[in-house]
């Protein structure tokens, strides 16, 4: 009763592992699977650092139990770009615009924005700000992140055109 074996897809690969039922998804990804790119900044659902995509939707991994991800597909920051391949346009734009300093909030920003740009390929700056209003960053003051997102949106649109 205290642990369960679960199977799920993470970054395109199938994983099977045992997890305590009280373990949240972020600890499962970090501890059980060793995918430490997903960070924990508050564990009460405010900071957004642990954001991952669950079946394509941005969710806070500290507010979902690992057992709830059974059979689902999870994408973490490690899955945004192929291991040794080119960066996702958001990642490239973050680097080019100094969108990260300490890098702790960055994985959650990237996953949140990856979903957002799929839904809103041509956003305004204001829409970008609203999209990341559930992600705290203490280093950048956000402007460089907004600029990076606008640049990435352009790049994604051009790639599609």
């Amino acid at each position: 009763m205290t642990a369960r074996r679960i199977a799920l897809t993470v970054n395109g690969a199938r994983h099977e592992a045992e997890t305590p039922v009280r373990q949240h998804l972020a600890d499962f990804l970090r501890g059980t699977l060793g995918l430490t790119g997903t960070h924990l900044g508050c564990e009460h659902g405010v900071c957004g650092a642990c954001t991952v995509l669950l079946d394509g939707r941005a969710v806070r991994a500290c507010l979902i139990l690992a057992v709830q991800a059974e059979g689902r597909s999870v994408t973490t920051v490690e899955g945004l770009a192929p291991d040794n391949g080119p960066l996702h346009p958001l990642q490239a734009a973050f680097c080019a615009n100094h969108g990260l300093q300490c890098g702790f909030c960055t994985p959650g920003m990237l996953t949140t924005l990856a979903e957002f740009l799929k839904d809103s390929p041509d956003p305004t700056e204001e829409e970008v700000r609203v999209a990341i209003s559930g992600n705290l960053c203490r280093c950048t003051g956000y402007d460089s992140i907004v600029a990076a997102t606008m640049e990435a949106a352009r790049a994604l649109r051009e790639a599609r055109a």
Partner: peptide
């Protein structure tokens, strides 16, 4: 000059090593 940051390569892919990543 605004040279690329050397920190970014690891951090941007979630490959940084923060203290909680050490196990």
């Amino acid at each position: 000059r605004d040279v690329p940051r050397v920190e970014d390569a690891a951090l941007i892919r979630g490959r940084g090593r923060f203290v909680d990543d050490i196990a």
